[in-house]
Simulated scan of single mutants.
Amino acid sequence: MNGADEQLLTDLFRLITLIRRSFDRAMTGQGASLAQTKILMCIKAQNGSARAADIAEMMNLAPRTVTEALDGLEREGLILRVPDRDDRRVKRLAITPAGEAAVTVTEPLRIELGAKLLKPLTPSDRRQFHAALQKLLEGLADS
């Protein structure tokens, strides 16, 4: 790897870190972090039928990571774990009114922050950047 490639990777990692910090700071101040909002949106998309394993699969995360995140959401009163009607061993995830309120505030904020982040890029820049990201993602999927 040459110096330009090394700098590209350094800048990419720095960008990822800055995006996460920026989004988390703004969103946490409104009720839920970026990660929490993403999990709440996944639960909401499942209409009350989501299990921890479903969320782990949807988000491509380790089950333990999801369990720890769900524990935090439950402690903060944003979700409930409810016994499954057909299988008492299974717990379904439900968003509480506080969780719904957090999504109502943070999801539009996430969209606004994303638009602000991409604003310096022209439509052509965005297409090229997206194409490059797709190639990187495909390369990682093959690994």
Rank of each mutant, 00 (worst) to 15 (best):
V105L: 05
V105G: 01
V105D: 04
T106M: 00
T106N: 01
T106K: 00
T106P: 00
T106D: 00
T106W: 00
E107A: 09
E107S: 12
E107G: 03
P108W: 00
P108E: 03
P108A: 04
P108R: 03
L109W: 01
L109E: 01
L109C: 01
L109N: 00
R110Y: 12
R110Q: 06
I111F: 05
I111V: 07
I111Q: 08
I111L: 15
I111R: 14
I111G: 11
E112S: 13
E112P: 02
E112K: 09
E112H: 08
L113D: 00
L113K: 01
L113E: 00
L113H: 02
L113T: 01
L113W: 07
L113G: 00
L113Y: 13
L113R: 01
G114N: 03
G114D: 06
G114Y: 09
A115D: 11
A115G: 13
K116E: 10
K116Y: 11
L117H: 04
L117E: 02
L117K: 02
L117V: 15
L117G: 01
L117I: 10
L117F: 07
L118D: 09
K119N: 14
K119Q: 13
K119I: 14
P120W: 12
L121G: 01
L121A: 14
L121H: 14
L121R: 02
L121F: 15
L121N: 02
L121I: 01
L121Y: 04
T122S: 06
T122D: 08
T122N: 05
P123F: 09
P123V: 08
P123W: 09
P123L: 02
S124L: 08
S124T: 11
D125V: 02
D125F: 01
D125Y: 07
D125L: 03
D125T: 03
R126I: 09
R126G: 06
R127I: 08
R127Q: 15
R127N: 05
R127E: 12
Q128A: 10
Q128M: 06
Q128D: 06
F129T: 13
F129Q: 06
F129H: 04
F129G: 10
F129V: 06
H130M: 13
H130C: 13
H130R: 09
H130N: 09
A131I: 08
A131K: 10
A131Y: 04
A132W: 13
A132C: 07
A132F: 04
A132E: 07
L133W: 06
L133N: 05
L133Y: 09
L133T: 05
L133R: 02
L133S: 06
Q134R: 04
Q134M: 05
Q134L: 08
Q134H: 14
Q134K: 08
K135R: 12
K135S: 04
K135T: 11
L136Q: 09
L136K: 03
L137H: 15
L137F: 12
L137M: 08
L137G: 12
E138M: 10
E138C: 07
E138S: 07
E138W: 07
E138F: 09
G139S: 10
G139A: 03
G139Y: 12
G139C: 10
G139T: 14
L140A: 04
L140V: 11
A141P: 01
A141C: 12
